[in-house]
């Protein structure tokens, strides 16, 4: 197939527009997630470590994806995990759930089941009683999305 100069230019412009648009969409979701993380942590980007997030590598049904978080902490009255925020980057709205722990929790660990619209990163951010924040991220491949159409 041979292209005329005009066709070739049109195609290139179209492709460029498509790439830019797609890029912006992905960026918007990521920006919203980042905003949610910063609002939770109080401005700083959390470090990795201490918190571990477990989720299946492949979820056949995005309607119920089991996730569990656990945070390494002594859980005493003056050194404990205050809360853990769960976010899903690719959902219509990234917020999933926030767990609030107390010294009476004994361990900073919780499990729940969440909805994922598509293959995406699930993020967990922990806030300690001294204000430091930690985060972990897992990619979950979703076969059937769970947000209904």
């Amino acid at each position: 197939m041979s292209l005329t100069r005009r066709e070739a230019l049109g195609l290139t412009a179209g492709a460029a527009a498509f790439i830019t648009f797609g890029g912006q969409l992905a960026h918007a979701a990521a920006a919203e997630t980042e905003e949610a993380i910063k609002a939770f942590s109080g401005g700083a980007m959390p470090e990795s470590g201490k918190i571990s997030l477990e989720a299946p590598e492949i979820a056949e049904n995005g309607n119920t994806v089991p996730v569990s978080v656990s945070v390494d902490s002594p859980m005493t009255a003056d050194n404990y995990v205050e809360s853990v925020l769960i976010l899903a980057e690719g959902n219509p709205s990234p917020a999933v759930a926030t767990f609030h722990f107390t010294a009476m929790s004994g361990e900073a660990a919780a499990k729940t089941r969440i909805r994922l619209a598509k293959t995406q990163n699930v993020i967990a951010v922990a806030k300690m009683s001294d204000g430091t924040t930690f985060m972990d991220k897992k990619e979950v491949k979703v076969t059937i999305g769970g947000c209904g159409g």
Partner: peptide, 23 residues
């Protein structure tokens, strides 16, 4: 005394399940 609490958003599955610990 509050042991554990959770704020949920629409991304939590139907029939919400929670597992946690208490000392």
């Amino acid at each position: 005394q509050v042991v554990f609490s959770c704020d949920m958003d629409p991304a939590v599955s139907a029939n919400p399940y929670l597992e946690f610990t208490a000392k």
